[in-house]
Simulated scan of single mutants.
Amino acid sequence: MKPKIYIDGQSGTTGLQIYDRIGKRDDLELLRIDEDKRHDVEERKKFINAADIVFLCLPDAEAVHAVSLVGNDHVKIIDASTAHRTADGWAYGFPELKKGQREEIASSHRIANPGCHATGFISTVAPLVQAGILPKDYPVSFFSLTGYSGGGKKMIASYEADGRPESLSAPGIYGRNLKHKHIPEMVKYTGLSHTPVFLPVVDDYYKGMAGTLMLQNRMLNHGATAEDIWQAYKKHYDGETFVSVADMDEKPGTLYANELSGSNRLKIYVCGSDENTAITAVFDNLGKGASGAAVQNMNIALGLDETTGLV
């Protein structure tokens, strides 16, 4: 019998992207609610409890309510919202985080999909903390460049509208209150003891993300160099399919944030001088940063090859 899959919030950007990745698969049965009943609580409850996997592509409060509709111990929830990313009892859906993370995802009935900016941050910071290179109290600074699709339907419409403001042709720095909603998961899953300074930037291209961590080598443990940092990433991500580490002499010039658009891959670039090191994670904000990661987590939760349906 094919696993039954239901997307609650199937008309949003993430829901549509998940559907694009699984809609043509013949190893799954995709349950589709009638368009005129997608806000009907009782109808949604019926679909949620009929499924093996439910993707929640909803605002936070609605995601919490959707979980309350589960009436059995069979269905597995993969929540793409922020609501449960640091909640007790929820597995964090970044399989490459640490040893045993895949097993935690596979055995859990509640899986929180990571935030897009958080994916870039955690993929670069966590391995260095785990390796003992980056002190937990290091004053971390991080910026993350994203395409406008990460802002959802309203932002997409504003960028693609005729006669849009000229300001949208330039990069836009936002989250300047330094309280971005991804910060709690950034701290929890890296083990940092202090909140990082994090600024996201949105620009005039559809999708793709580049998150950059900037380090002063003199403040690192054990006199670590850029070469040591590169070696730590190579060891941490050895054997991974979707996360890779570029050779240090690969692409010494300009990096473009959309180079992995359309894929579920994330690539880490390390560059450095004697005094400083910069690390950039490049990936698709709608792929490894959202729907691609959700499908990867679904594959793990169902005991399938986690690469199924993904590139």
Rank of each mutant, 00 (worst) to 15 (best):
L220D: 00
Q130R: 13
V245F: 09
V243K: 03
S261K: 00
V187W: 06
S193K: 15
L260M: 03
N264K: 02
P184G: 08
G262K: 01
K234H: 05
A131Q: 15
G211W: 08
S169I: 06
H236P: 00
P252K: 02
F143I: 14
G211D: 12
G152Q: 03
D238K: 14
L215P: 01
T241D: 03
G262N: 03
T225D: 04
G147K: 06
S193V: 15
V201A: 02
P200M: 11
V197N: 14
T225C: 05
K154Q: 12
S263R: 00
S244G: 06
A246F: 04
A257H: 14
K154G: 04
Q130L: 10
N221F: 06
P252R: 01
H182T: 12
M155A: 05
N177S: 11
E250G: 00
M155D: 09
I229R: 05
I133D: 14
N221R: 12
P165D: 05
Y233H: 04
S169V: 06
I183S: 04
H222P: 02
Q216L: 11
A131H: 14
M219D: 12
A224M: 11
K179I: 02
L260C: 00
E250N: 02
T254A: 04
G147L: 07
A246L: 08
D247M: 01
S169K: 13
K154H: 09
T146R: 10
V197M: 11
G132N: 08
G151P: 05
G163R: 00
